[in-house]
């Protein structure tokens, strides 16, 4: 019997080692990919980094005719459009997810869930077209005047109303990230154990109170995870944004004005870059986008970690 055991152990050890090495190799490959990509971007961006230094990030000039490049309008456009998209999409997505997981009967929930996920299958360029021809003009004619009237004291909603604008881009982005966030949140809510729901109900909670005290707190880290996912998609979305944002390298307080994002300007100018420095500056924009995405991801992860640690294991 000890012999059998030893032999079993030996075979298992070899299997384990092969498995470990394979998975390790795959994990390293991901790292290598990320590293290689960064190095490549960096080396192409080097001329621009040398030419503009740190000022690249703070300058608002983007002028291929004079070969002066600054990334600030695009960083601004990327961050604002993504954050605005999340502000619009997150409450909607939470509503959809709660409806699917708590309210709708199973058969209906499956169908609506499928339809929502179908939104994710629509190609970006179709969203872009729809944004140009339908959503943009509609927002300009109906939503913009309403916002301008209601919030006339906010510079965000002042000035001329244009159909290709930051607002249009944010709305399109919101619709595009909605299915991702709501799908993840639906799963998160469904994973809340029924014992937690029953504990709340048995205390005399109404359905909404049950959601508030049992479902949402239990799923909070999952919800933040879903938002990170949506943010990642919004930051990098290119074609649809390039089609509806107006591509104007300016920082304007008004959301009704055209703007541009890191991704959209790269897509727009890449093929017709006028000089080597222009091309290099576009690479640097790519690098900035990569760092921005990574940075936001890390920050959000730290936030989740902090939230869960504080909630679950806080020593006092």
């Amino acid at each position: 019997m000890p012999r059998v055991k030893t032999r079993d152990f030996g075979v298992r050890a070899v299997g384990d080692r092969v498995f470990n090495l394979t998975t390790l190799a795959m994990a390293l490959m991901i790292l290598a990919l990320l590293g290689g990509l960064t190095v490549e971007l960096f080396s192409h961006a080097l001329p621009s980094i040398k030419a503009f230094g740190f000022g690249f990030l703070t300058s608002t000039d983007w002028d291929p005719t004079t070969d002066l490049y600054g990334a600030l309008p695009f960083i601004y456009g990327t961050v604002v459009s993504s954050v605005l998209a999340l502000i619009i999409a997150v409450p909607l997505a939470l509503g959809v997810a709660l409806c699917l997981s708590e309210m709708a009967p199973a058969w209906l929930s499956r169908k609506i869930g499928f339809l929502v996920e179908l939104l994710a299958a629509i190609p970006s360029v179709v969203y872009g077209l729809w944004g140009i021809f339908v959503a943009g003009p509609w927002l300009r004619d109906h939503l913009d005047p309403l916002l301008a009237k209601t919030f006339c004291f906010l510079p965000l909603f002042q000035g001329p109303q244009v159909s290709v604008s930051m607002l249009t881009a944010s709305v399109i982005l919101a619709i595009m990230v909605l299915p991702y966030i709501s799908a993840v949140c639906t799963d998160v809510f469904r994973a809340v154990p029924s014992s937690q729901r029953e504990a709340a109900l048995a205390l005399g909670a109404t359905k909404w109170e049950m959601v508030r005290i049992a479902v949402l707190p239990y799923g909070v880290s999952g919800i933040i995870g879903a938002i990170i996912l949506g943010l990642g998609r919004a930051l990098g979305e290119t074609i649809a944004v390039a089609m509806v944002i107006g591509n104007s390298p300016q920082i304007s307080a008004s959301l009704f004005m055209p703007s541009a994002t890191l991704a959209s300007v790269i897509a727009n100018e890449f093929v017709e870059a006028t000089s080597a420095l222009n091309l290099s500056a576009l690479f640097e924009l790519g690098l900035v986008l990569l760092v921005l995405g990574l940075g936001l991801n890390i920050a959000a992860r730290l936030m989740v970690y902090g939230a869960t640690q504080r909630r679950f294991q806080k020593p006092t």
Binding site: S195, Q196, A200, A202, L203, G204, T206, I213, A214, P217
Partner: peptide
């Protein structure tokens, strides 16, 4: 359910709430 309370077979504290918040959970409802 307010008048007829219940304790389940397995303990079901709300994991994100403190001890006192757990006890007071029903009060806020």
């Amino acid at each position: 359910r307010r008048r007829v309370g219940m304790v389940f077979q397995k303990p079901t504290p709300f994991p994100t709430m403190s001890i006192e918040d757990n006890v007071a959970a029903g009060l806020k409802l």
